[in-house]
Amino acid sequence: MLTSAQMKPALLTGHPCISLAAPSLNQHEQRRPTHTSVAPLLKQRIPPHSWDSHIHVVEPQRFPVSPAALYQPSTHTLVDALAFESTLGIQNMVLVQPSVYGSDNSCLMDALTKIGPERGRGIVVVDPTTVPTETLNEWHALGVRGLRVNLQSIGRVMDQMELERTLIQHADIARPRNWIVEVYLPLNMVPLFEPIVPRLGIRICIDHFGSPELSSVLRYHDRTPFDPYALPGFRSLISLLRGGHTYIKVSAPYRLSKDQHLRDLLIMAREFLHVAPGRVIYATDWPHTRFTGVDIGPFTESCLQLCADKPGLAERLFRRNTEEMLGMLTV
């Protein structure tokens, strides 16, 4: 077992500010490309053949959302997604099944079929007890490379026994296909998750910084240094990253933090890159469902700055780590 000192290396300092404020888009503007405030610079600096490893395509008119959906999304098509990615200079994307579609992956598969496996991959949601093997094999041929277990979006809480059973069922599907299992759960559940992962025999990806509750860290004043190891579950997350089979997405900062905590997320990202530079994944979370007016440009710029002092790190964060995680390169 790692000692406290081993688990908590000296945290890096000098974190750039990021801002996510931008004018809101109305219904008539939603199909226009989402231009970022620093797009020209980003297009020149983002590594070639980069991946946006977490986006959603949603077309409720063509593919009705689940009756159990917690919100009614706007339309965001593959054409919209490609226009958005072009503003960043990103060529490739991973389509992730959003919660509003439940286990009906029709919209995702329609988009993935159109973009093709040369530029796209997919992460689907299934009922592991009923999904046909033939369907899984067809999806694999079209570029699906993982299964998603989403607890956070729907507020579902599992005890360790139920979580283990669910993950084993998904791992049994993923393992023979060399797929990943992508998990969206709150950070305070990661200690339950940690002892299960080594027994699954697959690669795991955790969404959106691990979904920390940043307000849980008590501060006496604004200048108190943020210590991510004070977050419930952060040590377990770091332990999983050190273990070698878990990846973490730095994505969707606006879901986790108001302005006063954005620096905290960058401190977390620095620590992830310090501990496991080969297992940190960049993503935008476009189209930022349930949020409007998000400008992801400044966050992307901050991710590039985090890599500035280490040759090759930006290519890992924006490209190679995603390709290794999805089995496109030798791990």
Rank of each mutant, 00 (worst) to 15 (best):
A308G: 00
G102P: 05
F272L: 07
G143Y: 06
W139P: 10
S153R: 00
T300P: 04
I238S: 05
S24R: 14
L241S: 01
E194I: 03
S211V: 15
H76M: 00
T77E: 07
I204Q: 01
V126M: 03
R199D: 15
A68Y: 03
H274L: 15
V124G: 04
P253R: 12
D104G: 04
V58I: 11
P117E: 00
T322E: 09
L214V: 01
R319E: 12
T166L: 15
L326Y: 01
I281E: 00
M268R: 03
T289V: 08
P298D: 02
T87G: 04
L112W: 08
K258H: 12
G210E: 03
I281Y: 07
N92Q: 15
E271M: 08
D259Q: 14
R199C: 07
H49V: 02
R203Q: 13
L266V: 14
V183Q: 01
S50P: 11
H245T: 13
V197I: 14
Y247P: 07
K310T: 15
L20S: 11
L326R: 06
S50E: 02
Q305D: 02
Y254M: 02
I168T: 14
I204P: 05
L185F: 08
T129G: 01
L108H: 14
V294S: 06
T130M: 04
S302R: 05
V124D: 05
L142A: 11
Y101T: 10
Y254K: 02
A68N: 10
S106G: 03
N321C: 05
S19T: 13
L88S: 10
V275Y: 11
P195H: 06
F209Q: 10
H56M: 11
T284N: 09
T284W: 09
M158G: 03
L329E: 11
P40A: 02
H76K: 13
L11I: 15
L241I: 00
L306I: 05
I123M: 07
V331E: 06
V183C: 10
F318W: 09
A283P: 12
P176Q: 07
V294F: 00
N137Q: 12
E323L: 10
H35S: 14
G233L: 02
P298G: 06
L187N: 13
G116A: 04
T224M: 13
G327Q: 05
F209D: 12
S216T: 10
A283M: 09
E134A: 14
P9S: 09
I154F: 00
